[in-house]
């Protein structure tokens, strides 16, 4: 037992640990009754997804996920929960509606069907297909692309992680238009939120209840990039 080598099982341990954590936290988001607990479970699920990104060699995306989702979206959700409190006295305390069984059937059915469809494909590997295409297999002089020096027994060594300069190159060279469109979308979203909030603070609650508090202008919590 003591000489049991754990090392080749480590990817499975990370995957099952963080994946199970993520799925359990997502179930907590969906099933728990209280909204604040839902937000905390959402933070846990997003942290689990960030850890899964890191197991997929996407370190930068893991950090961005923690910064933007856990630090931005969850805080925004918590603030909006705070702002929309005080409505629970007249309403029902049922947190779910009567579409429980059909929704479970739809979600479960979609998950099972798509899992079967996607997991039954033997997905090719980019490395394998490229190596099969371009190894020195006797047809090297006919290939249009000059084959890289690759012998079947000896793979070439590359950088193992993605440097951040690759993201900078990709954002600034081939995806520049989409980048600008994303910034435009963020600007429009920000202006839209400001307009919404100015109108909402002028709005009066119809039937006079205790929650007629006025919000000063500009007190919105908006996430900026």
């Amino acid at each position: 037992m003591s000489d049991f080598d754990l090392t080749p099982y480590l990817p499975w341990i990370w995957f099952y640990g963080f994946g199970g954590l993520t799925v359990l936290a997502a179930l907590g988001v969906v099933l728990h009754k209280k909204v604040v607990y839902n937000a905390v479970f959402l933070a846990l699920a997003l942290l689990g997804v960030a850890a899964l990104f890191i197991t997929l060699n996407a370190d930068f995306l893991g950090v961005v996920q923690v910064l933007l989702y856990v630090g931005g979206v969850v805080v925004l959700v918590l603030f909006s929960i705070l702002l929309t409190r005080g409505e629970a006295k007249g309403g029902t305390y049922l947190n779910r509606n009567k579409q429980n069984v059909p929704a479970a059937l739809v979600g479960l059915g979609f998950t099972i069907w798509a899992s079967i469809q996607l997991a039954s494909v033997s997905w090719p590997n980019a490395y394998d297909s490229l190596a099969r295409k371009y190894t020195n297999s006797g047809f090297g002089e006919f290939a249009t692309i000059k084959p890289f020096p690759l012998t079947p027994g000896q793979p070439i060594i590359l950088n193992q992680t993605y440097p951040i300069s690759i993201f900078g190159d990709a954002l600034m060279k081939p995806y520049l238009l989409i980048f600008e469109l994303a910034s435009l979308i963020l600007l429009v979203a920000m202006v839209g939120v400001v307009v919404y909030m100015k109108n909402a603070s002028k709005k009066s609650v119809p039937d006079g209840s205790a929650s007629k508090k006025s919000i000063p202008d500009g007190s919105i919590v908006e996430e900026k990039e």
Partner: peptide
């Protein structure tokens, strides 16, 4: 896909 299905369930059922 499991995450997506849980999201579908929550988006349909929650109030």
């Amino acid at each position: 896909l499991v995450l997506f299905g849980i999201g579908i369930y929550g988006a349909i059922t929650r109030r």
